[in-house]
Simulated assay, not measured.
Amino acid sequence: MRQVLNQYPAQRDDIADLVTRRPLPGPGLPQVDPFLFLNHHGPQTYCPGNSGLPFGPHPHRGFETVSFILKGEMAHLDSGGHESVIRAGGVQWMTAGSGLIHAEISPASFKRDGGPLEILQLWVNLPGRLKMTKPAYTGLQREDIPAIPVDGGVVNLISGGFGGVRGPIESLTDVAMMTVELEAGAKVDLPAPSGRAVFFYVVAGSPSANGTPIKPQHLATFAVDGDTITVKTEAPATILYGHADPIGQPVMSHGPFVMNTREEIVRAIEDYNAGLFGKPPVVR
């Protein structure tokens, strides 16, 4: 079993009226290669007549974004013509690749009626050979995601494998991602294959990982001395969990662009300004 090395608290960094905590990047932890960035929005409750999510049209290049809608709804529109509204329990997986402009906003019904909202937004890096791949988008509702029963809970499998099941997303780099929902007294063995980087963020609760209690809204890092992480709970807990092969390449980031070199960042800005990412989606 992999030993817990450290755990890092999510830092509060609200965006307008959206409660936001960010465990990655954070003090002493620039990345968990290939996982670059995680924003934890909420949980909070919006009143009727709200302005909704503040993420209007903006560009990306060189990586993938994965959004987990835990509570509420989120609408997606992008310059590739993709459009959807994902409800609670669903996931949006977008490959920005060579360049895409997207908006992540609240649908009109949510702005009118309000309600609970909690969203996780994860950035996953791409290796240099795939940074200019064709952009793509997949929106999954809860019913599209396999819910695999475990002892005292369920694993919602988005990509990769678990318990002999494959998730509906076939990642370009074989990233495994899942959310783990556990009741009090649960126990589950999560795979942590040799050589793979592990992503372990406690959304809620205080589970133990291989005997070490992990605090709520903390990101845990692990040694590479095993291939299993055993999670136990004394109270209900929710975990965002994944594993992937480290890329091991330089990371040059500038706002919404993540490349390998400064020259590639400059080219991304020039291409965006030249309109090569397509027309921004029209937000109504």
Rank of each mutant, 00 (worst) to 15 (best):
Q249R: 11
D33W: 02
Q11E: 01
E64N: 11
V91A: 03
D227L: 07
D33I: 08
F162P: 02
T221D: 00
P48R: 15
Q3W: 00
M259W: 00
D113G: 03
L5M: 04
Q31C: 04
G89K: 11
E263W: 07
L130R: 14
Y46A: 10
G205I: 05
T20D: 00
P30N: 07
E270P: 09
P146N: 04
L38D: 01
K232M: 09
I214V: 12
F63S: 00
V165W: 12
L172S: 02
P280L: 07
Q217A: 15
Y46R: 10
A209W: 15
H60A: 03
P216T: 08
D271H: 14
P281K: 15
F110G: 00
E83S: 15
P25S: 06
H218V: 08
Q249F: 13
M178V: 00
F257M: 01
P43T: 09
L53T: 01
D113W: 10
V231T: 05
V165F: 12
T238F: 03
Q44D: 01
P135Q: 10
V66D: 00
H41K: 12
G28K: 13
W123P: 02
D151Q: 13
P116V: 11
A75V: 01
D78F: 14
T138Q: 04
L276T: 09
L219Y: 10
H82E: 00
I269H: 10
L24K: 15
G90V: 07
P34K: 14
G28S: 08
G160S: 04
L5Y: 04
N125K: 15
A147Y: 06
Q141S: 11
P149W: 12
A268T: 05
I105S: 04
N260G: 07
L276F: 11
D113R: 14
G90C: 04
G56F: 14
L140W: 02
G89C: 04
R129E: 08
A237G: 10
G167A: 05
G128Y: 15
V282L: 02
V32I: 14
L36S: 03
A237T: 08
M252T: 13
Q31M: 05
G153F: 06
G115T: 11
D14A: 05
Y46W: 13
A184D: 03
L36K: 05
D225V: 01
I101N: 02
K215I: 03
H60G: 10
N39L: 13
G195I: 09
G248N: 06
Q7H: 13
D174L: 13
L130H: 11
G49T: 04
I101P: 00
M177P: 01
V165M: 10
Q3H: 08
I239T: 02
P146S: 06
H218K: 06
Q121D: 07
P193E: 05
G160R: 14
G153S: 11
L190T: 10
L190C: 08
P191Y: 13
D33L: 03
I86F: 12
P9T: 09
Q217P: 03
D271Y: 10
N260T: 09
I119D: 00
D227K: 15
T95L: 08
I119F: 11
Y137R: 09
V155G: 01
Q249K: 05
G167K: 14
